[in-house]
Amino acid sequence: MPIHSLTSHTTILLFLLLLISSPITKTIAENSHVINFYSPNLYPESLAWDPTKQHFLVGSLRHRTISSISDAGIVETLISDTSLPENVTVEGITVDSRNNRVLAVIHAVKPLPPFNALAAYDLKSGNRIFLSALPANEEEALANDVAADYNGNAYVTNSIGNYIWKVNAKGEASIFSKSPRFTEHSVDPDTLYSFIGLNGIAYVSSGDYLLVVQSNTGKLFKVDADDGTARHVLISKDLTYPDGVVLRSDGVVLVVSPQVNKLWLLKSNNGWGEGVVYDEIDLESEGYPTSVVSRGRDKMYVLYGYFMEGLLGNSEREGFRIEEIRSPKESEGENVWLYVMIGFGMVYFVYWRFQMGQLVKSMNKKIN
């Protein structure tokens, strides 16, 4: 094959590569999964993923229920516990797959009498396994989020008291960690929700520790799951009103904030002695995104439960949504591999054309 012919084919292929790269990038960015679901006055604050049944679970501000949400947006009531005090809120929830349970933090919002508890339910039947009252040292407490370790222990954050409860597999509750690290950072009392301290929590099985965010300071803490000692994790920037936290299977920590409508992706290469915010994703302001989950290795879903609207007294909403969020930086990495594969294909195509040209020349010589 003549050199100019090879150059011509290469130029055409490079042009096609540039031509298709933009649509591919656009498709990766835009083709996210959005699940719209409808349940009157549900106002869910919490979101969990059940890997066994492959559906989402949500709590409720108004109902004493935990509902399952399919990919098609079909809502089914998994748990309805009418024995709980009326008008309590189902706050943080998590799926304890190893023990076939779903754990739910129960809290009574003022002006209701104080009530803070952890409920455990059988994941298949929905039957309650235990309801554990969470002991408090002060008049006010706000049980918020929950994480579970592989031994069946649950860890619940107290946002007002700035400590962590522990509930063992039998349902026995105790105050687990009141580390001075949780109160060593100053808080401006005039800021919005200055009373919300420890909030989202995740368990890291590889090191047997917890990662906890503090909303009013933006700090991240690493807490030993054995003795409750804590240390402040140095990260590249403080987070603004962090709320929900989840650990992805690849070690990336996801943190969401409904106050500034952000999703942060954090990494650490030294077991969370320190970390870095390597991506910051803007979320929609409508919907008040309070919770994030990881589905599979790297899929991320955020809950738009309009929770603040519900707290302010609105009782008319029926529609809510769960939306897949994609990281532009991680998508760029996917595109690099795509370009590499196309490049290999281009080289192979040019080589094949060259070989075919040589074969044709050889055959022509034989015929002549």
Rank of each mutant, 00 (worst) to 15 (best):
G73D: 05
I74G: 05
E76F: 15
E76P: 03
I79Q: 06
I79M: 07
D81Q: 06
T82C: 12
T82Q: 15
S83H: 13
L84P: 06
L84C: 12
E86Y: 13
V88H: 02
T89D: 02
T89S: 14
E91Y: 13
G92I: 11
G92W: 08
G92R: 07
T94Y: 03
T94F: 06
V95D: 04
R98M: 13
N100Q: 14
R101I: 10
R101Q: 14
V102D: 09
V105S: 12
I106W: 12
A108H: 04
P111Q: 09
L112V: 05
L112K: 06
P113M: 08
P114G: 04
P114V: 06
N116I: 01
N116F: 00
A117G: 03
L118V: 12
A119E: 10
A120L: 06
D122W: 03
S125V: 09
G126W: 02
G126N: 02
G126S: 01
N127G: 11
F130M: 09
L131Q: 08
S132L: 11
L134S: 05
L134G: 00
P135S: 08
N137F: 11
N137K: 15
E138I: 01
E139Y: 01
A141L: 09
A141R: 11
N144S: 14
V146A: 03
N151D: 14
N153P: 04
Y155L: 07
V156G: 01
N158F: 11
N158V: 02
N158G: 05
S159M: 10
S159L: 08
S159F: 09
S159E: 06
G161W: 06
N162T: 00
N162A: 07
I164E: 03
K166C: 02
V167M: 01
V167S: 01
A169Y: 04
A169L: 07
E172Y: 00
S174P: 01
S179Y: 02
